[in-house]
Design a protein around this nucleic acid. Structure first.
Lengths: 202, 202
DNA sequence: GTCTATATCTAGATAGAC
DNA sequence: GTCTATCTAGATATAGAC
């Protein structure tokens, strides 16, 4: 039956956050529970409450880490994409799909409605930095106004989130598409968003 | 206090499906439960089980209805969009956002992983017809191959699903965007996917 | 055809032992 | 710092009354 629970961890707080990512990657937000995370670590269901007062605070900590990691992944992808601003923004879409496929923690977790009434300054900082990175990529494309940059970033995020949702919901299951293949399609679709009637010049 | 439960319905089966849509629109799939649906109708929590053997069968029935309604909404939007094939496909994205914002039942419900092992022929029929409608819109755009039509339809669905997810997750909350405004953006973004600035399948 | 009542399960959260 | 034990609440599902 259940593995024995003689497990005393050195840094359970960090382990809980890491296990939360695994849990999210496995079953998504719907199946996320403090009890399930505790089970993953072979600790009692009460142990997490020594480190987080409740479920929302654990999710909030995960959200902050995810926002920071996602921002780093996007920055890296932009660097690898080269110098074309539109390609750099599109690469963010691909990085988003890869990150969420791997960790299960995308915008639906980072900006989860459950966390809206939850004023965690550290988390606010991370989410703000993430949005700033994205908006910087958007304004760099040379659209005529900030407003249009916002719209383009939103569209890029929407494409990435859309492919991510379809992947997570098993829409691509039959064809057995890998996360990387889907991420490449997201990048390509995002790239074509930037190139319609009004070009970026060059 | 709970309203009294003296309610005998004429067609509880249909009422359960309708109430399921309300429940999905309110709390999404995560908060969907047979008990919550029964509460909405002021019937006992046991009543639904006279009409559906279990939760999955209720969801399956909802899925079939949603697929049919969604297909009708997409067809109508295509007609209203006129004769340009790319505009007709893009209009499907807008119709999708509007339909899911209103009903809560999008692809994540229609193709919910919970239903994969659930062989309901009526539902299969509806979902197949929905995909056929979308693929017809895709092939009509005159892309050089069927494979590219599939990719373009997938991208269009992804855009629509992405805006839908962001809307449902409260991403647009602060700006208080209406569902119609978001649907218009989805339409516009989907429209730019079809722009031949860069070969979609190079 | 719908009700009441109930058995079982899982999750969130707390108290107190070690 | 983590455990066992326990309480509460809500969900699925079944049995049997009316």
């Amino acid at each position: 039956m259940a593995a024995k629970r003689s497990y005393h961890h050195g840094d359970l707080r960090a382990a809980l956050i890491a296990a939360s990512f695994d849990q999210l990657a496995d079953g998504g937000l719907p199946r996320f529970s403090v009890a399930a995370v505790a089970r993953r670590l072979n600790v009692s269901s009460a142990a997490p409450y020594r480190h987080f007062p409740d479920r929302v605070h654990l999710l909030g900590a995960v959200s902050a880490v995810a926002a920071g990691d996602l921002r780093a992944a996007i920055e890296t992808a932009a660097v690898e994409a080269g110098s074309d601003p539109a390609a750099r923004l599109a690469a963010a879409a691909g990085a988003y799909v890869r990150y969420v496929a791997r960790t299960g923690a995308g915008f639906s977790v980072i900006y989860a409605a459950e966390l809206h009434d939850f004023p965690d300054e550290a988390r606010r900082e991370q989410t703000r930095a993430l949005m700033t990175s994205l908006l910087d990529l958007g304004t760099a494309t040379g659209v005529p106004s900030y407003q249009e940059a916002v719209l383009m970033v939103e569209a890029t995020i929407a494409v990435a989130q859309g492919y991510t949702s379809l992947l997570a919901d098993g829409f691509f299951a039959r064809k057995a598409h890998s996360a990387d293949a889907v991420a490449d399609r997201a990048t390509q679709a995002a790239r074509s968003l930037a190139a319609p009637s009004r070009g970026a010049g060059s």
